[in-house]
């Protein structure tokens, strides 16, 4: 079966800075892949490259069988961090979630009953029914996050990319989001999610990737967590106050990043 995401030696540069260095991995249908790593490790860059928002510098990347920028409209849903937009924008919860349908609509198509139904289902999935008419200026951080996820669900995508959706949300919201994502994955939707929270990775993901510009480890979440790959970079960041810039990643993991149970 063709993987949903197929990356080989994927390199992304911003001018002279290498943000992603030779990432190699596959993502299959119905699989949730978690990506952990410290700030600046390339998590968001990886998601944006898969979404076609950032061009790769070299290497191979196929998403849903195509070049990322040639994927059919509405196929990829990207959920950014909530700070990425201006929440004083004049819109209600419904307005924002309904935007998820826009890539599915041609210029001349009306926002029809099917679109309203998809929007309502998405709101239901994130437990936001009853708040449709609330202006987004009045939402809490957790509610903003749920609105973003609902917008992605309304899009009915074939690939869901989430950039740290649990940052700053309470435990209840985190559990609700996890239930939503796991249900989607069970239904066959492939998901890639960047996260900082190593403690809950087993309940979220089928596989886990440790990223520090290079893929240091990838495999079963428990095995990856136990491997120490993430702990080593976290310790370095804590000790030195910055990411390793010119380091060689953990050699064993760098050379053989796939960890099997």
């Amino acid at each position: 079966m063709t993987p949903v995401v197929h990356a080989r030696d994927l390199v992304v540069r911003y001018d002279d800075f290498v943000a992603l260095d030779g990432a190699t991995f596959d993502l299959n249908a119905g699989e949730a892949l978690g990506v952990v790593g410290p700030n600046g490790s390339g998590k968001s860059t990886l998601l944006k490259t898969i979404a076609g928002l950032v061009a790769r510098s070299s290497g191979e990347l196929r998403v849903l069988g195509s070049e990322p920028r040639r994927v059919a409209m509405g196929s990829i849903a990207y959920v950014p961090q909530v700070e990425s937009v201006d929440w004083s924008f004049p819109a209600t919860v419904w307005d924002v979630v309904a935007m998820g349908r826009f890539p599915r609509l041609q210029f001349w198509h009306r926002f029809a009953a099917a679109d309203r139904a998809a929007t309502a289902r998405a709101l239901e999935a994130v437990k936001m029914r009853g708040l449709e008419h609330r202006p987004i200026t009045e939402l809490s951080g957790g509610q903003q996050q749920r609105v973003f996820v609902a917008r992605a669900l309304a899009q009915e995508p074939q690939l869901l990319l989430l950039d740290e959706p649990t940052t700053g949300v309470d435990a209840t919201t985190e559990r609700a989001l996890r239930d939503v994502v796991r249900n989607l994955v069970r239904g066959g939707l492939p998901v890639i999610m960047a996260t900082h929270d190593l403690d809950t990775v087993e309940s979220w993901f089928d596989r886990l990737m440790v990223l520090d510009r290079r893929v240091l480890a990838i495999g079963n979440p428990r095995d990856v967590a136990d491997s120490g790959a993430y702990a080593s970079i976290r310790e370095h960041t804590h000790t030195h106050g910055h990411l390793r810039i010119d380091h060689a990643p953990h050699e064993a993991h760098a050379l053989h990043p796939e960890i099997h149970p």
Binding site: A51, P80, V85, M99, G100, P103
Partner: peptide
């Protein structure tokens, strides 16, 4: 409202 996510879509 959100040019980045619109572009991704």
């Amino acid at each position: 409202f959100d040019p980045v996510v619109a572009q991704a879509g």
